[in-house]
Design a protein around this nucleic acid. Structure first.
Lengths: 205, 205
DNA sequence: AATTATATCGAACAACGTGTTCAATAGCAA
DNA sequence: TTGCTATTGAACACGTTGTTCGATATAATT
């Protein structure tokens, strides 16, 4: 890619991110992005047809970093780890999100969060669907999958909104505890039709 | 309230709802609302300062219907019903939402859903916080409360998006099953430090 | 019914944002 | 150097916004 293009694209992303920290997505104008990025008006439209396209590109950019390791790791996933495997994945994901904090905090505010969340949940659905057949509940599979994805997305949103007051490790553990304890079994147990508790067990405190 | 005001307000709400079914909140203009409602430009601004104010008012309007019974019922809530009480409340709430389908489906689309969800979760937080001390998990109370509220809001959003393919009764039961089974105890059990399962019990299927 | 109060109308207005065009300029690559 | 391409900035037509104000229509009060 031409150095000039990359430079312009970076400037636009940087300006957009900065503006997202200051105000709502819907109230940000292309004019402001142009001014903040210090580029020509026609240059912006040479890169992005619309503001939505820019947001989509920024989300994709962030997710490619956040999920890259996860997607690679999935290929070696052998379903033998029970929920500790899922917990490790989620912890890893939260760590990535924390490192991208600057961008994501801005994006999650108000309306732009809607688009971000949609893309985010698409990725999460991929991750969770790999574990779906290990989770048991008296509810249809599509309900459970949506519940897992949605509640994790909500948890992340809340966690970031609370300035990440808990560590990624704590947050992942709490999530597993509330969403999955007593629901995850491993391959061996399923084969034997024995349903086991999580590695920590349910302590009822 | 002056009959003229009420008539105008209704016309605006009706027009706004209709437009929300056709296109995204962010792409709806005040001009379109005016044309659809067939009112004068200055009349609109006499009622609402901005489009956001209109959305907020519409949400409040819907919630006042959806939650009114719940809020009244709360006053007579005696914490003795375990999760069956919560399940009844949620079923009732879902029934109301189904009856308001026409409005809500439009609102939940895209960006406007963000605002709707925020207000919705505010109400839900009130409802769930009444039950929080009955729910046990190895996680902080604020985490659990957010998880319950967030996952239910997500469930509702998903349920509506799936054209309410499950009945309100089924949906509430699935939610309780996935979110609360093995987590809800009653006052008596807590006093004795005995942790009991829900009335249906966890069947591990 | 007559009067008072006020909601609506509709046209006009300035200010701003949008998306496009185009010729000139500047930077990259071979 | 030479060609290729990205950027520039001004200009344009167009739509949206939010406000103003006198005229009109409708409701509430007596």
């Amino acid at each position: 890619m031409d150095r000039r293009q990359q430079k312009t694209r970076d400037a636009i992303f940087k300006a957009f991110s900065k503006l997202l920290e200051q105000k709502r997505y819907g109230n940000i104008t292309v004019q402001e992005i142009i001014d903040e990025a210090n580029i020509g008006r026609s240059t912006f439209y040479a890169h992005f047809e619309t503001k939505d396209e820019l947001l989509k590109a920024l989300c994709t950019d962030i997710f490619s970093h956040v999920f890259s390791d996860e997607l690679i790791a999935e290929k070696t996933h052998d379903f033998s780890g029970g929920n500790s495997d899922l917990e490790a994945k989620l912890t890893h994901l939260l760590n990535h999100l924390r490192d991208s904090k600057k961008n994501i905090v801005g994006i999650l505010s108000c309306e732009s969060g809607e688009l971000f969340m949609r893309y985010f949940k698409e990725y999460l659905t991929e991750v969770f669907s790999k574990y779906l057949n290990e989770i048991k509940a008296n509810a249809p599979a599509d309900f459970v999958l949506n519940h897992l994805v949605g509640s994790f997305a909500e948890t992340v949103n809340w966690w970031i909104g609370k300035n990440m007051k808990y560590t990624p490790e704590e947050t992942a553990r709490y999530y597993i505890e509330v969403s999955c304890t007593n629901r995850i079994t491993n391959k061996y147990a399923r084969k034997k039709h024995i349903y086991v508790h999580s590695h920590e067990g349910y302590q009822g405190i």
